[in-house]
Write a protein that binds this DNA or RNA. Structure first.
Length: 737
RNA sequence: GCCGGGGUGGCGGAAUGGUAGACGCGGCGGCCUCAAAAGCCGCUGUUCGCAAGGACGUGCGGGUUCGAGUCCCGCCCCCGGUACCA
C-alpha cells in the first residue's frame, strides 16, 4: 500500500493569490506547502511523505518539460493559431474565467478576441481510444458519462455544396458541411459559414463585401464567452452568393452567422430549418424558406411547421427517398450521396486539441527555442530543466506579451541545432500538464536521472484507487489518460490507463453553501482539532454525510462523534474479562460484517453509525463491557480515529501497532443469526401489529399467531379473506374486503 | 436548453419492492450532583383521542403492485457541470 500526497501549485490561481498578498510565488508556495503538510500530518493523514511532489519544483517540472519534448518529437505537439480573450486596456490575455459578462474582471473593459500562435497537443488523434477504453475501467458512472459527453462522438456525413455564380454555373469552389442528419439534405434551404471561415471573402458578392466584413469584424470583437452564449437572438448577414443543393439541384443562398462555430465540424453548415431548431430560429428571423422533409405521425406534407421537427417519421419532399423511415434514412441517403460523389459518412468529435500555452509567468517554461533558420527546436533533454527565472514584477503589462518575453537575458539564447542567435519560447505550459502525469512520478521521486524507474513503475502502477473531486471529472482525468496512452505508445510504460478505479467524493459544504473566503464560511481545521482532537474531527467528517455526495458541516454535529469516541474510550478502559452474552455477541458480529462490507464501498457514514449502535448495545442499561466485545470495535474505528485506537490497542495489551499485521476482526456467520424475529402484521398493506416469533417457525403457525392478534382480528372480522401473503421473517399481509 | 446529482422530522442524514425516519444533532422530562459539566434512563414526524387505538405523512399529479421513499409516466423546485457541437 502506497499513498503519497503532493502539491500542484503552478497556475493562475497561485499567481493571482501571490499578487494579492504581495509575496512572490517562489516564496509563497513553499510556506503554503509547509502549512498544508503540517495540517495533513496533524489530522493523522498516513501519507508517505518520503515520496511527495511539488509541481513547481524544478526537480519535478524538469520532467514535465521532458514530457512535452516526447510529445513534440512524436509530432503530437504542434503550433497553430487560436483565438484568445484579449483585454485592450490591460493589454493582456485573459482566461475564460477572467471574463465576466463580456468584460475584463479587473478593469471592466469589453473583451475582444485575438488570434495568436499557441502550442497544442493532438488529443483528438486519441479521441476514439479515449472513448473506447471507458468501457473497461472501474470509474464512477457519473464520471464516465461526463467523459463520454466531453469527447462527444457523433456520426453523420460530410457533404459538398458547389458554389455557383449568378448564371448558376459552378465556380469550382465547394463548401464542405458536416451534418448528423444528411437525410434531411432535401430540406437544406441555405448554407451558413462561420465568420472565420476561409471562404467568406470568395463567396461574397461584391456589393455585399462591406456588410460582410463589418459583420466579421464585429464577431471578432466579441469575446469568446459572449460569442458562445446561446440565449441571444441570432445574427447574420447574406453574402449575396449562392451554392447548389446537391440533392435538389436548387440554388440556395450562402449566409454568414456567428451561431456557426469554426471550431466544430467544417465551420460551415447546411441549414435545414424544418428540422433543426437553431436553423428554424434563424430562418424565421431572416424570412428564409422552411421546407418540411420529415413527416411525423399524423402529419401530411401540408402540415405547417410551428417549430423544428426532430422526432421520428418518414421522409417527404425528398425525391426518390419519400417514405423512407428516419431510422434508416441517414444510412440510405449517405450511401446515395457517396455514390453520386458529393458526400461521405463521417465521424466527428466535440473534443478539441489541447491548448497547453499560457501567456503567463507562473508555470514551467515550454522547452522550445525559436530559431529563424531552423524554426521551433526542442531544448536538448540534457539541458533540462529550463528554469523559470525569478522575476520580481511578473504582472502582465502594456506590452501584451508573456511576462517572460520581457526578460531578455533569459530568452536570448542560441539555437541548439545551428548555434545561431535564437529566442526561447516565452509561454509557459498549462497546469493540467503538471498534474497529468504526477502519479507516475510518485514512486520514483528520489530519481534524478530519469522521470521514473521502469521497474518500480511496472510494479506499482497503474494506480489501484484514485479518489478525487468531480470538478476533475473531465479535464484533469482526460488529459491524464491521454498522456498515459502516449507514454505507452512511445514505449515508456506498459499500461495505457492510469487509474483502475476512480471514485468521486462529494463536497463538504457549510451553511448550505460551498465554502469560500468571500462568503466567510470557511471551516479552519486547527481550532477544531485543538478543541476536539484530530480523531473526532476525522470521524465527524466521515460521519456527517455520504462520502460520494458530501454533506453539510454543522459545528454542533461534532458532538456526536465526540461523545461516541469518549464513550468508546471509557468502555474499553473499564472492560472486564469474561464471558460475553449472546445478544451482545450477535450485535458485535453483525457490526463487524456491516463495517467490513461498507468500508470498501465508501459507506463510511453508515459504518460509523453501525459502530455507534453496537456500542449502545454493549453499554445498554449501564452494562460493563467484556473485552472480546470491544476489541473488534477498537480495530474498526482505527481508520477513523487512529490515534485513540492505537492507544487503546496498547492498553488492551498488544505489543505492536494496531496498523501492523492483520488485526481486522472477522465475523462468524453462525453468530449472526437471530433466533427470534419481529414480524410485521398488515391488513391490506397497513401495519396493524408486530409479533415476535421463532426464526424458522412454520408458516401456518406464523399466520395463526398473526390472526390471533387482537388488533388484527378487529380489522379482518366480518370481511372476506382473499389472500394471505407471508414473507418469512418479515411480514404477514391479510388481503381482505 | 442539455448532461449529471438531489428533494425524507426542527436539523445532518438511514432504509435488497416488505414495520419510513437507523445513527447523530437539537429539544423535553428524570437520575446523579451543593451546583455545573460529563455520564446514565425515558420521550421526541403531524394530527385526533382520557386511553385502546385511528387518520395523515418521503417535492406535485397519475399509474403498476397484496404492499411504493424505492418501479413506470407526466410535471415542479434545488445543487453542480456545460454552453448554439450541426
Amino acid at each position: 500500500m502506497f499513498e503519497p500526497m503532493g502539491f500542484d501549485a503552478f497556475g493562475i490561481h497561485s499567481e493571482n493569490f501571490a499578487l494579492k498578498v504581495g509575496t512572490h510565488p517562489m516564496d509563497l508556495i513553499p510556506s503554503n506547502v509547509k502549512n498544508f503538510t503540517r495540517q495533513l500530518r496533524r489530522i493523522g493523514g498516513m501519507f508517505d511523505w518520503e515520496h511527495s511532489v511539488d509541481t513547481t519544483d524544478p526537480a519535478y517540472y524538469k520532467w514535465t518539460q521532458w514530457i512535452f519534448l516526447q510529445f513534440f518529437k512524436a509530432g503530437l505537439a504542434e503550433r497553430k493559431e487560436a483565438p484568445v480573450n484579449w483585454c485592450p486596456s490591460c493589454m493582456t490575455v485573459l482566461a475564460n474565467e477572467q471574463v465576466v459578462g463580456g468584460e475584463c474582471e479587473r478593469c471592466a473593459t469589453p473583451v475582444e478576441q485575438r488570434r495568436i500562435a499557441q502550442w497544442f497537443f493532438r488529443i483528438t488523434d486519441y479521441a476514439q481510444r479515449l472513448l473506447d477504453n471507458l468501457d473497461h475501467i472501474d470509474w464512477s458512472e457519473t464520471t464516465l458519462k461526463a467523459q463520454r459527453n466531453w469527447i462527444g462522438r457523433s456520426t453523420g456525413a460530410q457533404l459538398r455544396f458547389p458554389v455557383v455564380d449568378e448564371a448558376g454555373d459552378e465556380t469550382g469552389t465547394h463548401i464542405e458541411v458536416y451534418t448528423t442528419r444528411p437525410d434531411t439534405v432535401f430540406g437544406a434551404t441555405y448554407v451558413v459559414l462561420s465568420p472565420e471561415h476561409p471562404l467568406v471573402q470568395s463567396v461574397t458578392e461584391e456589393g455585399m463585401l462591406g456588410h460582410v466584413s463589418d459583420y466579421v469584424e464585429a464577431a471578432a470583437q466579441r469575446d469568446l464567452v459572449a460569442r458562445q452564449k446561446t440565449d441571444k437572438t441570432k445574427t447574420g448577414v447574406p453574402t449575396g452568393g449562392f451554392c447548389r443543393n446537391p440533392a435538389t439541384g436548387e440554388m440556395i443562398p450562402i449566409w454568414i452567422a456567428d451561431y456557426v462555430l469554426m471550431e466544430y465540424g467544417t465551420g460551415a453548415i447546411m441549414a435545414v430549418p424544418g428540422h433543426d431548431s437553431r436553423d428554424f430560429e434563424f430562418a424565421e428571423q431572416f424570412a428564409l424558406p422552411i421546407v418540411r422533409v420529415v413527416l411525423g405521425p399524423g402529419d401530411s406534407s401540408e402540415t405547417p411547421l410551428e417549430e423544428a421537427y426532430v422526432g421520428p417519421g418518414s421522409l417527404i419532399n425528398s425525391g426518390p427517398f419519400n417514405g423512407t423511415d428516419v431510422s434508416e434514412s441517414v444510412e440510405v441517403v449517405t450511401a446515395w450521396a457517396s455514390e453520386k460523389g458529393w458526400g461521405d459518412a463521417r465521424v466527428n468529435f466535440r473534443l478539441h486539441d489541447w491548448c497547453i500555452s499560457r501567456q503567463r509567468y507562473w508555470g514551467p517554461p515550454i522547452p522550445i527555442v525559436h530559431c529563424d533558420a531552423c524554426g521551433p527546436v526542442a531544448v536538448p533533454e540534457s539541458d533540462l530543466p529550463v528554469v523559470l527565472p525569478r522575476v520580481e514584477d511578473f504582472r502582465p503589462d502594456e506590452s501584451g506579451i508573456s511576462p517572460l518575453a520581457r526578460v531578455e537575458a533569459w530568452y536570448r539564447t542560441t539555437c541548439p541545432e545551428c548555434g545561431a542567435e535564437a529566442r526561447r519560447e516565452t509561454d509557459v505550459s498549462d497546469t493540467f500538464l503538471d498534474s497529468g502525469w504526477y502519479f507516475i512520478r510518485y514512486p520514483s521521486t528520489d530519481l534524478d536521472s530519469e522521470p521514473f524507474d521502469s521497474g518500480i513503475t511496472s510494479r506499482w502502477l497503474p494506480v489501484d484507487a484514485y479518489i478525487g473531486g468531480n470538478e476533475h471529472a473531465v479535464l484533469h482525468l482526460l488529459y491524464s489518460r491521454f498522456i498515459t496512452m502516449v507514454l505507452k505508445d512511445l514505449g515508456h510504460i506498459d499500461f495505457e490507463e492510469p487509474y483502475k478505479t476512480f471514485r468521486a467524493h462529494g463536497l463538504i459544504i457549510a451553511d448550505g453553501a460551498k465554502m469560500s473566503k468571500s462568503k466567510g464560511n470557511v471551516i479552519v481545521p486547527d481550532p477544531i482539532i485543538e478543541e476536539f482532537g484530530a480523531d473526532t474531527f476525522r470521524t465527524y467528517l466521515m460521519f456527517l454525510g455520504p462520502f460520494e455526495e458530501g454533506g453539510d458541516y454543522r459545528p454542533q454535529g461534532i458532538q456526536g462523534p465526540f461523545g461516541f469516541l469518549h464513550r468508546l474510550w471509557d468502555t474499553v478502559i473499564s472492560a472486564r474479562t469474561g464471558e460475553t452474552d449472546a445478544d451482545v455477541e450477535r450485535k458485535v458480529h453483525q457490526t463487524i460484517r456491516q463495517v467490513t462490507e461498507q468500508i470498501p464501498d465508501l459507506g463510511y457514514n453508515t459504518a460509523i453509525a453501525a459502530m455507534m449502535e453496537c456500542l449502545n448495545v454493549i453499554r445498554a442499561g449501564g452494562r460493563t463491557a467484556v473485552r472480546a466485545e470491544v476489541e473488534p470495535l477498537v480495530v474498526m474505528v482505527a481508520p477513523f480515529a487512529p490515534h485513540m485506537a492505537e492507544e487503546l490497542w496498547e492498553r488492551l495489551g498488544h505489543a505492536g501497532s494496531i496498523f501492523d499485521g492483520a488485526n481486522w476482526p472477522e465475523f462468524d456467520i453462525a453468530k449472526l443469526v437471530e433466533t427470534t424475529v419481529n414480524v410485521a402484521i398488515q391488513v391490506n398493506g397497513k401495519l396493524r401489529a408486530t409479533i415476535s416469533i421463532e426464526k424458522n417457525e412454520r408458516e401456518s403457525e406464523v399466520i395463526a399467531a398473526a390472526r390471533a392478534e387482537e388488533n388484527v382480528m378487529r380489522h379482518i372480522e366480518g370481511k372476506e379473506e382473499r389472500r394471505v401473503i407471508h414473507v418469512p421473517g418479515r411480514l404477514v399481509n391479510f388481503v381482505v374486503g
